[in-house]
Design a protein around this nucleic acid. Structure first.
Length: 485
RNA sequence: CGGGCUGUGGCGCAGCUUGGUUAGCGCGCUUGACUGGGGGUCAAGAGGUCCCGGGUUCAAAUCCCGGCAGCCCGACCA
């Protein structure tokens, strides 16, 4: 590939050199493997389906965490921590919950060199332990709402792992709340869905999502209603990026959570739970990655700017140093690459693959002209910028990146989403994207047929794209149908 | 659990059909020089239980038998 200034990139020289990644994802687009491997985000773990997140990938996750955590706290939820190991009997208390999760449980049968009296499961999610404690902690309507969140790892023994998107162990955030009324619970589940998840995904990550609720078939095990954010990846497949569940009183009844209301009557409370995971890192890669690697929104980039010292030279080093100082003073995360013992090409390709939004090249040629070379990653353009204008230029670019990425992703979503009148048309259209079809034209039998074609209803929404009202059985609902990861 | 396939330096592979010198190649790695504005060039070098066990043979990476491991497709799913 030739850049607009005539220079060439060497990326194509080693097509498919996944190298560090023995990807269990060969059905991903070719570029995905290259991006993951080249960006050094992750490796497979020693146990099948587990994942080692390398520093660059983890740093992206940390930024996502920070964005989510701030919004979760804004919603009034506090962080807490609950045990990794859960007595097996806890899982069995809620019938649909255990039915949904037992096939994918990892069970610990021995400890301290002896067989355990009761096996412990490694949490696949923490509804059961947390509700065990809610039962102890909730007594009065004055205790409500009770809202906790935990950042933790969970284990689900999935049959078919995919790096970042479905690994046996993954990191996530799971929130759990208890409310006095069903209305309040619903309102809160939706607040998390839109005010935390949707806002982070679209506003921070630049990934447009279709929000809606799941059909009964796709609902979380034990929930009355599951709200979801569905994104579309570069290949037209859908990805469930986050869910928020209304649990009704199911867990409250199963775990004996009760409170005395204002009139002294014992009541079962209404609950929610909600989570997003390291899958979001995979979503970022899939949604924004191009043939040259990752493209990161600045808010999530471990470094927003990298200053590349082209050649080992005293004056160049000094110029780079003062550039870094200036950028840091303006609040940017900046990294210097002065590893002049490796070639320039190698280093620039590395940062391109890692997705650093802006690269500033400083070399003798630039200094001679009192300028630097600014490379904008997401557009792959190079600009000669006067030394005095760099800060302003970089700042304008960084402010624009997320908007540009989102606009591109929105266009991709729009161009691969079609309105269709019936099930047959939906099946045809969903082969290459998403189909919007009247829910009334599908129904339970229709979902069965979709499943046989490798398709599913990703979510249900109102005709205008809004979320459904309190009554689920709205006949005017529109189903989003597609293939999914 | 069904259906495909693969095990050969760190990674990716060739060699196997038709047994035969010292098991090759690319990438990576080490050292040096020249370079350095998109994975640069040249030279020298290190690195192997050819998955394991048994068998056939003068001779096995190669043929036969038996294990083991892993990958892909499907079912399950944040």
């Amino acid at each position: 590939m030739i850049l607009d200034d005539g220079s060439a990139t060497g990326l194509e020289r080693t097509p498919g050199s996944a190298g560090t990644l023995t990807a269990r994802s060969s059905d991903f687009p070719q570029w995905y493997q290259e991006v993951i491997a080249g960006a050094e985000l992750a490796d497979n773990g020693p146990v099948r389906g587990t994942m080692v997140i390398r520093p660059w990938g983890y740093a992206i996750w940390e930024h996502l965490q920070a964005e989510l955590d701030a919004r979760i706290k804004d919603a009034g939820v506090e962080n807490a921590y609950f045990p990794l190991l859960i007595p097996q009997s806890f899982l069995e208390l809620e019938a649909r919950h255990v039915e949904g999760f037992s096939p994918e449980l990892a069970v610990v049968t021995h400890g301290g060199g002896r067989r355990l009296e009761e096996p412990a499961v490694v949490r696949p999610t923490s509804e059961t332990v947390i509700n065990h404690y809610f039962a102890k902690w909730v007594h009065s309507h004055r205790d409500l709402p009770m809202m906790v969140n935990q950042w933790a790892n969970v284990v689900r023994w999935e049959l078919r792992p995919r790096l970042f998107l479905r690994t046996t162990e993954f990191l996530w955030q799971e929130g759990h709340t208890v409310h006095a009324t069903s209305e309040e619970a619903r309102e809160f589940a939706l607040r998390i869905l839109t005010g935390v998840y949707l806002e982070t995904m679209e506003g921070v990550a630049g990934i447009p999502v279709l929000a809606g609720h799941k059909t009964a078939r796709e609902r979380f095990a034990g929930a009355e209603q599951t709200w979801t954010c569905e994104g579309m990846m570069g290949d037209g497949k859908a990805l469930q990026m986050g869910t928020s569940h209304e649990l009704g009183q199911n867990f409250a009844r199963a775990f004996g959570i009760q409170f005395s209301d204002a009139s002294g009557q014992l009541q079962y409370p209404w609950q929610t739970s909600w989570g997003v995971s390291t899958r979001l890192v995979g979503a970022l890669v899939m949604a924004h990655g191009d043939d040259y690697g990752l493209r990161l929104p600045p808010a999530l980039a471990p470094s927003e700017v990298v200053v590349l010292v082209v050649r080992d030279d005293e004056a160049v080093r000094r110029a780079a140093g003062s550039l870094v100082e200036g950028l840091r003073a303006s609040g940017r995360r900046v990294r210097v690459d002065d590893r002049t013992s490796s070639g320039f090409g190698r280093r620039s390709v590395e940062w391109e693959r890692k997705g650093v939004p802006v690269r500033i090249e400083v070399g003798p040629r630039d200094l001679a002209e009192q300028s630097v070379t600014v490379v904008v990653r997401h557009r792959r353009t190079k600009h000669r910028v006067g030394v005095d204008e760099v800060l302003g230029f970089v700042s304008r670019v960084l402010d624009q990146v997320t908007t540009d990425l989102r606009a591109e992703a929105e266009e991709a979503l729009r161009s691969r989403t079609v309105d269709v009148p019936d099930l047959d048309a939906a099946i045809e259209a969903a082969a290459s994207g998403l189909a919007l079809v009247p829910w009334a034209a599908i129904g339970l039998g229709g979902e069965e047929r979709l499943a046989s074609q490798g398709l599913s209803v990703r979510c249900l929404r109102r005709e205008d794209g809004g979320l459904a009202g309190p009554s689920d059985e709205d006949t005017s609902l529109v189903a989003v149908v597609g293939r999914a990861y």
